[in-house]
Design a protein around this nucleic acid. Structure first.
Length: 422
RNA sequence: GGAGAAAUGGCAGAGCGGUCGAAUGCGACGGUCUUGAAAACCGCUGUCCGGGCAACUGGACCGGGGGUUCGAAUCCCUCUUUCUCCGCCA
């Protein structure tokens, strides 16, 4: 979330930037400022009274030692009154702070200067296109048919075991999953990312830290009996490694990578957009997470984008990179690049990665800070990206590489799959 | 799951209910010495919220929450976590 201080000092800019994100409740900004001013007034009154009470307590102690009982008990009476009023002030302060927090938590992050104005997906900017579009026969099969034909993925079986959106990968289909995960992790390691294996259930504090809570409560699977959430992305457990941490500037850049299954309820989706692997409740993803000095975070974002671009190029998939417009960006992001690969049989672009700089928005929630050159603490910047999410990559590989003789595995994956054709 | 013990600053570790934001040691940082380094010696060393240009100053924080008291790191309740023992177990 944004810091109150920043909102106080940059009110005009905040409102202007929130408009780019199509945020409508701009009156909240004035409410924040007003509540914060009220907070300061109440708190300094409370502090003064506490100071007085502390003083009196000290005096009483001294008087008792000297045996001046009557003077001590008259001081005690004063303290009793103070105690009552500090209790009230304390409660008042708490109410104000809660109210303030409730508002802060629903204000989205401000978009970076380069973010285009726009309402939705159509207003995103294509910043780069790469790879070669495959020449396909008009009767090219979509991946769900190919998956059936070659017995790679059994969607119906998943329905039987769990429900829609939980496919069962079989044989070479399962091996392809494993190959991709290992390929992505190895590439990340080569690029200097440290691999971690985090828990895939997280507590409420972690969900709050990266911004999934309270905003997207309904999109995560929730294990009520233990009050835990299944991770929608490795971003959550990995970034939360650094919750309540003060780093040194020399620790930057922090670069982590993790493979986890991801769980998303995605309530309300239907139709051909969700057919096959296009949208699942459980899927596999390798994530990269960076933490950096605010001075370098946009350079780091570019490096992460390059890394993802390298992956799709090596997989020989036609891709394009989009800069998301204000209206299509996530709640927590300042700047997001989406990667899409072209799926030849479906004849459409599929989103396979999203790389974002959150600036200090998550860090403020996480209390993730670092000591700068002056040894002052300040909020770090957090970034993350998918590198990559598997299902749509699999869809594109199957569709784009289909031949009469089977499906060709991209060269870079052969050492991992140990087979060249499906 | 059952029984017991514990939770203090970056770490280790002290702390008769007032003089404790907290001894001491280590570490880190700054300095003296040195060609350089080590050693030695000196100094400094938490976070957050206010006020002040600043020096400085008020408040809060000793796992979380609540209570007793004029006053709580210290006493009481509760939750969480860790350790030891027992049981179960991939």
């Amino acid at each position: 979330m944004l810091t109150v201080k920043f909102i106080q000092e940059n009110k005009v800019k905040v409102i202007e930037k929130l408009t780019v994100k199509n945020f409508k409740q701009l009156e909240l900004i004035d409410q924040v400022i007003e509540l914060d001013n009220k907070r300061k007034t109440v708190q300094s009154e409370l502090d003064n009274q506490l100071a007085e009470a502390n003083n009196l307590a000290k005096q009483i102690g001294a008087l008792m030692k000297e045996g001046k009982q009557t003077e001590a008990s008259s001081a005690k009476e004063k303290t009793a009154k103070l105690k009552e009023s500090t209790r009230e002030l304390g409660l008042h302060l708490e109410t104000i702070e809660k109210e303030l927090n409730k508002i802060l938590v629903v204000i989205p992050n401000l978009p970076h200067e380069s973010v285009p104005v726009g309402k939705g997906a159509d207003d995103n900017q294509v910043v780069k296109t790469g790879g070669t579009m495959p020449e396909m026969e008009s009767d090219a099969a979509p991946h769900w048919d190919l998956a059936k034909k070659y017995d790679l993925i059994d969607f119906e079986l998943g329905v039987k075991i769990t429900g829609a959106g939980f496919p069962v990968y079989k044989g070479k289909g399962a091996k392809l999953q494993r190959a991709l995960i290992n390929f992505f992790l190895d590439e990340a390691e080569k690029a200097g990312f440290t691999e971690v294996q985090p828990p895939i259930l997280v507590n409420e504090d972690s969900g709050f830290g990266t911004g999934q809570l309270p905003d997207k409560e309904g999109q995560m699977y929730y294990v009520g009996i233990d009050n835990l959430y299944l991770v929608p992305t490795a971003e959550v457990p990995v970034t939360n490694i650094f919750r309540d941490v003060i780093l040194n500037a020399s620790d930057f850049p922090v670069k982590y990578t993790a493979y986890t299954p991801c769980f998303r309820r995605e309530a309300g989706s239907y139709g051909k957009d969700v057919r096959g692997l296009n949208r699942l409740h459980q899927f596999d993803k390798v994530e990269i997470v960076c933490i950096d000095n605010p001075e370098n975070s946009y350079k780091t974002l570019e490096i992460m984008v390059k890394h993802v671009e390298n992956l799709v190029s090596k997989l020989e998939l036609p891709y394009r990179i989009l800069r998301l417009c204000g209206g299509d960006m996530g709640f927590t992001s300042s700047l997001t690049y989406d990667f899409e690969v072209y799926s030849a049989a479906q004849k459409k672009w599929l989103e396979v990665s999203s790389v974002s700089n959150f600036e200090s928005f998550q860090a403020n929630r996480l209390k993730l800070r670092f000591r700068d050159a002056d040894k002052k603490t300040q909020l770090a910047h957090t970034l993350n990206g998918s590198a990559l999410a598997l299902p749509r990559i699999v869809a594109a590989i199957l569709e784009n590489n289909q031949t009469p003789g089977g499906i060709k595995i991209p060269k870079v994956l052969v050492p991992y799959t140990k087979f060249e054709m499906i």
